[in-house]
Computed example of a mutant assay.
Amino acid sequence: MLHPFKGITPQLGNDVFLVDSAEVIGDVHIGEQSSLWFNVVVRGDVNFIRIGKRSNIQDGSVVHVTHKKNPTWVGDDVTVGHNVTLHGCRIGDRCLIGMGAVIMDAAVVEDDAMVAAGALVTPGTLVRSGTLFAGSPARFKRELTAEEIAGLKQSAENYLNYVAAYR
């Protein structure tokens, strides 16, 4: 599950939940109460990865970096859906990244934003706070409603309950 790379061992905050098939490599810090689910790979080998508190990385997702150029940052209370690829990007707090989405190098998803399932967020794209981006390539679709923004935090909280059930 945890693999040192070039003498750097992943660091886990208190109460992090990792299933046995999750692989975490190298310069990775994961904040308290975050969860990595089945067949997730978080590979901080040629740059670093930081995952905040109470975030969940769901089944089959891959988190990687750009060599010597772009680390990957995932904020607090983030939901990363099944089979997502995050590569050398920055994800703010309370975001939802839909199933199968790909977020590429130097892209930034600001706080309280949503990327739709299957979206391709191309290099350098800015997903502004309070918006929904969808499509391939991903483009602005609309502003999020107040209910949807509240739901972003609720999604992360749901995963805290799932962790409790698995334990």
Rank of each mutant, 00 (worst) to 15 (best):
N39K: 12
P71G: 08
D20R: 12
V40S: 11
F17D: 02
L152Q: 07
K6A: 14
I91M: 03
H82M: 10
D20G: 04
G26I: 14
V74C: 11
E148T: 04
K6F: 12
T131G: 04
M114N: 10
E147K: 13
F38H: 15
E110N: 04
K53F: 07
R167N: 14
V108W: 05
V28D: 09
H82A: 11
H87D: 05
R50P: 02
H29S: 15
E23I: 15
I30G: 11
I49G: 10
A116W: 02
N161F: 12
R43D: 06
H3D: 07
V63D: 06
E148W: 07
A146H: 08
P137A: 08
G151W: 01
R43H: 07
G118H: 00
Y166Q: 05
G60M: 05
R50S: 14
K69W: 03
T66P: 03
D20N: 11
I91G: 02
V65E: 03
C95N: 07
A146N: 10
F140H: 04
D59Y: 02
N70R: 02
L36N: 13
L132H: 03
M99W: 13
G60H: 10
S129T: 04
R142I: 07
M1V: 15
A156R: 11
V163F: 12
D111T: 01
S136T: 08
E32L: 07
A165N: 08
T145C: 06
D59F: 04
N70L: 02
I149N: 06
V46M: 11
D112K: 02
L96Y: 09
A165P: 03
H87P: 09
T125H: 00
R128W: 00
K6T: 09
V78I: 06
